[in-house]
């Protein structure tokens, strides 16, 4: 299986060349185009119950599609918003993805949904998050550019900008400054992360786009 992320960073999309026996799993509606030699099989993402939880609380699709072929073919996967896509190879480790970030993975990767906790809800990051573990490649996307950072001490991220984090990262909610500046500076609540581990951030937030658009509607 040959893969390539094209049109980085503004309109990233994944081009995958599948050979006989190759399989790739992608979020529903991720397929832009493909050779007709490729078959699609639709399945519950991570089992029925988890799929339902994921749909209801993580605002993700109930289903994932598995693409495979008996001969060979090309597949283009994309995300709904413009932005970058990152590929990560899992070696038995785990990564938490924010709702909407997951795009595709190899079949050896386990997909699960986890309760992210009240603190993530307060940070407007969603009550649930996707958990990817096992071995193999995972592709996830973001609105805007993706940048990563190895965290050893404390680090502050604006809410809505966190895309993915490792389980070894502790996440707490804090105020950007004092009560006054937190509420009036427009920064509001921020997410404080503590290492060790890696986080992935996006350079724009979809909530930010919606707020900007709303304030310019007439």
């Amino acid at each position: 299986m040959e893969t390539e992320i094209r049109n980085k960073p503004s309109f990233a999309n994944i081009r995958i060349k599948l050979g006989p026996g190759d399989r790739v799993i992608a979020e529903a509606d991720a397929m832009a185009s493909m050779s007709s030699t490729i078959d699609i099989k639709t399945m519950w993402s991570g089992g029925f119950l988890r799929a339902v939880l994921k749909r209801v609380f993580g605002s993700e699709s109930l289903f994932v599609n598995e693409f495979s072929t008996e001969s060979e073919g090309e597949l283009i996967l994309t995300q709904p918003f413009p932005g970058d896509i990152e590929c990560l190879e899992l070696k038995g480790n785990t990564l938490y993805l924010q709702p909407g970030a997951f795009l595709a993975c190899e079949p050896t990767v386990r997909l699960g949904v986890g309760w992210a906790g009240l603190r993530m809800l307060i940070a407007r990051e969603g009550l649930f998050r996707l958990k990817v573990s096992g071995t193999g490649r995972v592709w996830f996307g973001a609105y805007g550019g993706i940048f990563q950072r190895e965290i050893s001490d404390e680090y502050v991220v604006d809410s809505g900008h966190l895309v993915a984090y490792e389980p070894s990262i502790n996440v707490r909610i804090g105020m950007a400054g004092g009560i006054f500046s937190s509420f009036f500076s427009g920064e509001g609540l921020v997410t404080k992360v503590t290492g060790p581990g890696r986080i992935y951030m996006q350079s724009r937030s979809f909530g930010g786009l919606a707020a900007w658009t709303n304030s310019h509607l007439w």
Partner: peptide
Amino acid sequence: NLLLGDTGGLVAKGS
């Protein structure tokens, strides 16, 4: 809006 730190939305709501 103040609670959620979204002051931009306030103007929009007003208009």
